[in-house]
Simulated scan of single mutants.
Amino acid sequence: MEQILSRQEASEAVQDAGWRFLLGTLRTSVPVGSSARAIGLAADAVAACGDDADRHLRVDARPDRVVFTLQSLEHAAVTTRDVELALLISATADRSGFLTEPEIGTGAPRSVQMLEIAIDALDIAGIRPFWKAVLGYTDEAGATGPEDPLVDPFGQDPAIWFQQMDRARPQRNRIHFDICVPHDEASRRIETALAAGGRLVSATRAPAFWVLADLEGNEVCVTTWQGRDG
């Protein structure tokens, strides 16, 4: 029977196979080298997943790499079936001479990651309909409340979530990025950002997230799955 996994359970189940848990999904990248190889590998992975491909798998095929993302669309979470499919895709890639990997420390431009946009608001229920309409977004599966996140129905653009403010803070940016990276990539990403002129604003919620800012005070959060269960 398909069961929803905790963040730690999902992460540990696939880490050795080159997948990482990011924002309620499993994600990996496969360097390929050409569009033909990318499409071929994507087709092989879809075939290996069978009917479950439509319910769990998203594929982004580019000339240089294929990015696979797994999540149960029914549960909007990672399940035991997603883990099974991840291992199946890794085995399929291996038979074709490819490697599923998070691209950490490989010389790739970046690791696998996911981007969210956070909007600070005093009245979340009041502004949420505007952002839903102007972006053409929809409710996240199983989260249709007046303060819940919004997602791109095509799964291409960043999700939007709303952070409750207790008072107006005009000197602080009200919209910021959350960069969700693999838990074993976070320290390197932060060090790189600090070396590029950034500063650490807060690490009080690490390893769930660190708050960084540029020279003008614009903030960004580097986030991981850790420190959120329990």
Rank of each mutant, 00 (worst) to 15 (best):
A208S: 09
V220M: 05
G107A: 02
E219Y: 01
E140C: 10
T224I: 04
R62W: 02
D123Y: 11
R37L: 14
V151S: 06
I190C: 04
S72P: 07
A213S: 01
F130D: 00
G24N: 04
D44E: 15
Y137N: 09
Q8F: 04
A213M: 02
D82N: 03
R37I: 10
Q15C: 14
P129Q: 04
Q171L: 14
Q226S: 14
D120H: 07
D178K: 01
V32H: 11
W225R: 08
A53D: 12
W161F: 14
V67A: 06
L22W: 14
G142Q: 07
R189S: 07
D178N: 08
A196G: 13
A77P: 13
R81Q: 09
F68K: 12
T100G: 08
P158T: 04
D64N: 14
M114W: 02
D178M: 06
L200S: 05
R81L: 12
L85R: 02
R174I: 13
G126F: 02
P109G: 10
F68A: 05
R110H: 15
D229N: 00
L22F: 08
E116H: 11
L5Q: 15
H56W: 11
T69H: 07
E84T: 07
A38F: 03
R188A: 15
F177H: 11
H176I: 15
L87K: 15
R199I: 02
D157C: 05
A86C: 11
V46S: 13
L194S: 05
V83C: 06
P63R: 10
Q164S: 02
D54G: 14
A10H: 10
T79K: 06
V211Q: 01
L135S: 13
I104R: 07
V46F: 09
C180S: 02
V112Y: 00
I4V: 15
T80S: 15
D229I: 06
D123H: 13
F177I: 09
L85Q: 00
G227C: 04
R20L: 05
F162E: 04
N173V: 15
S6W: 06
D123L: 13
G227Q: 00
P109F: 03
A206C: 00
H75V: 13
Q163C: 14
W19N: 07
C49D: 10
R199W: 07
E216K: 07
E12R: 13
W131Y: 15
E103D: 10
F162W: 03
A159M: 06
D157V: 01
F209W: 07
G24A: 09
V222K: 00
S34N: 10
A10W: 00
Q3F: 14
T79N: 02
E147A: 12
L70P: 14
F177W: 03
Q156F: 08
D120V: 03
A206R: 13
I4M: 14
D229P: 00
Q113T: 12
T80P: 12
Q156K: 15
T224D: 00
R188G: 06
G50M: 12
I127K: 03
L41W: 01
R174P: 09
Q156N: 12
D178G: 01
Q164P: 00
E140G: 12
C221I: 04
Q3C: 13
